[in-house]
């Protein structure tokens, strides 16, 4: 009887290890570190708009939701001091828009690699001018050494891909002339 229970536990445990279940990414883990070099501070308030995201679901595993990317983007911009203020103010001078492209996610495996594909655009309302327009695709990988549980590994891979995307965004913002 004990052998049977042990076998069942092994089977269920193995399934949990290799399957990508559902845990949403966290803002803190997606916040990008500031790349080397100077990022100019834009002279005004920015508001961040995100579309195209999908909430994490139990069936399909971790996914990037609009609210999650918005929070991580705002945290990154604040941390990098890229704008004077970050707010939801409708009258903000700058609008940073992100369009998330839905990309296939890993379904099963020991190593999960997520891709995050986002179209970024920065509009200066005062000048009615698009200052930045760029599609950025980045990937993140998590292995068994990062986490034993499949759901955690999936989330970590997604967070790494989103973090890399925001780091690339900061590099692009550093090239903008305000």
């Amino acid at each position: 009887m004990q052998v049977r229970i042990a076998r069942l536990a092994c089977v269920i445990g193995l399934s949990m290890l290799v399957a990508a279940c559902a845990t949403p990414p966290t803002t803190g883990a997606m916040r990008a570190s500031v790349p080397s070099g100077t990022i100019p501070t834009a002279p005004g308030t920015v508001t961040v708009k995100v579309t195209g995201g999908q909430p994490t679901s139990e069936l399909e595993g971790a996914s990037l939701a609009d609210a999650d990317l918005k929070a991580a983007t705002e945290a990154t911009l604040l941390h990098a001091n890229a704008f004077q203020r970050v707010s939801d103010d409708l009258g903000a001078r700058y609008v940073l828009s992100a369009t998330i492209v839905r990309v296939p996610h890993p379904w099963i495996g020991l190593t999960f690699t997520f891709e995050v594909d986002i179209g970024w655009s920065l509009l200066d309302r005062a000048q009615d001018k698009v200052l930045l327009r760029k599609g950025i695709t980045t990937s993140g990988t998590a292995t068994m050494s990062d986490a034993i549980g499949g759901s955690t590994r999936g989330r970590m891979a997604l967070e790494a891909a989103a973090r890399a995307n925001l780091e690339q965004l900061l590099r692009e913002l550093a090239k903008v002339s305000y």
Partner: peptide
């Protein structure tokens, strides 16, 4: 199991449709 096809601007890689 899954497929995404994206049409992009040539220079910026900005996703126009997906």
């Amino acid at each position: 199991v899954e497929l995404t096809v994206t049409v992009r601007e040539p220079i910026t890689d900005f996703p126009l449709a997906s």
